[in-house]
Design a protein around this nucleic acid. Sequence first.
DNA 1: GTCTATAAACAGATAGAC
DNA 2: GTCTATCTGTTTATAGAC
Lengths: 211, 211
Amino acid sequence: MSGPDTIRPKRLSRAEAKLRTRELLLESAARTFARKGFGGASVEEIAESAGFSVGALYSNFANKEQLFLELMSARATSRVTEASEILEEGNLGETDPLAALGRMLADVADLDIDFAPLQAEFWLYAVRNPHVLDTVAARMRESREALQRLIDATSRRAGTDLGVPSETVATVVFALLQGLVRQRRLDPGSVPPELFSQALRWLFTGLEESA
Amino acid sequence: MSGPDTIRPKRLSRAEAKLRTRELLLESAARTFARKGFGGASVEEIAESAGFSVGALYSNFANKEQLFLELMSARATSRVTEASEILEEGNLGETDPLAALGRMLADVADLDIDFAPLQAEFWLYAVRNPHVLDTVAARMRESREALQRLIDATSRRAGTDLGVPSETVATVVFALLQGLVRQRRLDPGSVPPELFSQALRWLFTGLEESA
DNA sequence: GTCTATAAACAGATAGAC
DNA sequence: GTCTATCTGTTTATAGAC
């Protein structure tokens, strides 16, 4: 009768091992789908890049599509939400939140090279497959809401009234930043890191003006 | 010795017929790549959707990739350039160019359902294949320049100084509009048609303010 | 739970008929 | 110049060994 791992807590239980396998496969899937696309990535490639065989993959996921969908649900927009939360908590009053947000986005564009392609792949899958469109749209809304909270907090602190629902503002800011990240990937010279915060500043100046 | 088609001008010469075949194949490729992606679209599907067989396709294009690249070169950004030119010529002083541009973009998002997915597919291909990145970036620059000319003309007419190079402004406007078009595809309710021109107005108000 | 081996379907690309 | 038939490699997915 082997009890719980009291002697060697490092050894993983079967359930933990399987969860870890899933985790590794999802990470590998993110990399591979980002670099090759849904159609271009093979399940064998994904499995081997994670250090497993196809069998292990199919023991954890029903098929290629379900693996993709699960990955999408897990991190469709997690990075943005994450970022917004960091800004929300970390910069309560100290530095310029717009500048911080801009810097961070430029970093995402440059350092997390799989992020934008993966987002694009998710978006494409959503617009091509009506039955998952609502799910992706909902995830996107979560990110937008995170951004919206940040905008609310910032304008409240500054004592300014934007004159329009912050939901609308968040939508525009979200679109702007996403567009700039993509353009920077294509032609870094045309989108210097400062442009992110600069563009935001123009937008908010205009908003306050028209309030 | 058969001379030129003097009797029945409707009959196409072999060269014309081949050109027409290429044209039809490219159109079909645009539809199919937009709906299924590069990896998901099969050459057979593309050929048959155009009313031809695979043989005809391979007689006109070296392979699937070259077909895709040729399509990309042909219309990577033609729609935007087109649109800018229409606005540039058509609205010399009459209506609000910002409102017209916004309306048009909303229409593109709603009516030309293959446009945005195809753009996304091109972008993905470019960031995944370094050897075509410069080509796509160059095409994108052409569109940006068209937009820039429109902005220049508009601000000149209005007698305002933007305070920043119009190249920079065009980059930001371009990113903003692209982001809104994509977001509208995902969740039309969050991006009403008026938002396109409204967002542009905020941006330009802020720009003029900071000049 | 994961691996190896394999089945079954499909893709891209070519050759020869017309 | 286009079509039909086919070759070849690769893909997804499964079955059975460990």
